[in-house]
Design a protein around this nucleic acid. Structure first.
Lengths: 192, 192
DNA sequence: TCTTTTTATTGATTTTTATCAATGTTATTT
DNA sequence: AAATAACATTGATAAAAATCAATAAAAAGA
């Protein structure tokens, strides 16, 4: 249990057995069926979720009912509405399962106590958020500065596993495009 | 000296006098004239810069020579090519001064030693990167899910000081638009 | 297995945005 | 103060992307 989570943790900040045991006490496992919500817009986000297995998406819904995917999550990634989690404000994102999933949940109080008690947990948190920041900055740079073809090619190179496992219209949503446009972008690329 | 920097630091993690003195030893002041580079694409990014005064921008340049602004920085903000800073890889962004500026520089070695020696500095770093992440996520959400008019209105509400101090074509670049399009978006808003 | 739902593609049309060009205005520099 | 450079606006046109609609294919459920 929590295998991947502790793999990840140990890769970034090697732990003693005691530290592992201590941290384990703060964790909660959770399984999610495909299409099931982890979080709904309007509810406060109570957890950070580490993904042991499966695939999830975080998204907002606009006035017309269109989903805009802000983040995908696969094995080994963390997913949450961080703003809501940290402030207690109602969530602005929904999170649900694209595939059946197994999660490790960390509650707000657990997170805060771990930050206090275990310096390595703070380092882990810092490294995680730094990685997430850099990934998002790359995404933003390519949105502002690249053509759609470049952006899609780039995305497939960077996340081949997402492309395999997730329906295209969700990738279109992630890119801020309609499914039709993404389909045409792909045709163009294929013809080259 | 370093007034705003320590204000900021103390607001997030109140320091003892000793801690302040210790940290001061690792800092370097730097003045920048308008249009002067802090960092050029291709060079490794040696510093994180805290802005005491002035305005800067971080941007990439595409094949056609167009600038794409990835970040603005004003007083109290931090600016850097974080990926380059952390990995030592050549920078992919340029950073220069929009106005004459006064900076507090933290070198790579200083950053690493401070993370080791001063737990509060790690907390400070974690809080900063978290804030930057949340701000960028908001930006991304509005790019993917909102109309141009909403995006611009939002931007002006969020950063009125940037709108005042920075030429419009730079804001267009930040939004991923041509200056002409932003000008027309503004006309539309004004007419309402 | 059969039915229903989800997904992807393609075409025609409209809307949005970029590009090119010209003009006036405001800042900077000399 | 005059000259130059940087900036913002406007119009005409081209290019890109969204929308609407129809169809086909694939996956999931009964």
């Amino acid at each position: 249990m929590y295998e991947l989570f502790f793999n990840n943790l140990n890769k970034k900040v090697p732990l003693t057995g005691e530290e592992e045991e201590e941290i384990k006490r703060y964790l909660t496992p959770k399984k999610l069926r495909k299409k099931q919500y982890l979080l709904q817009e309007g509810d406060p986000c109570k957890y950070i979720a580490f993904i042991e297995k499966g695939a999830l998406k975080a998204y907002s819904v606009d006035d017309k009912g269109n989903e805009h995917i802000i983040q995908f999550g696969l094995e080994g990634w963390i997913i949450s509405d961080l703003y809501s989690f940290l402030t207690g404000e109602p969530a602005t994102y929904n999170i649900d399962a694209i595939e059946d999933a197994e999660l490790v949940l960390i509650s707000k109080s657990a997170h805060e106590e771990l930050l206090q008690k275990i310096p390595k947990y703070e380092t882990f948190t810092r490294l995680n958020i730094t990685g997430a920041y850099l990934a998002m900055q790359k995404r933003l740079t390519s949105i502002i500065g690249s053509s759609l073809e470049e952006r899609y090619t780039n995305f497939t190179a960077l996340y081949p596993n997402i492309v395999q496992r997730v329906p295209q219209h969700m990738i279109a949503s992630y890119m801020g495009l309609t499914p039709e446009t993404l389909s045409r972008v792909r045709q163009k690329i294929i013809r080259k």
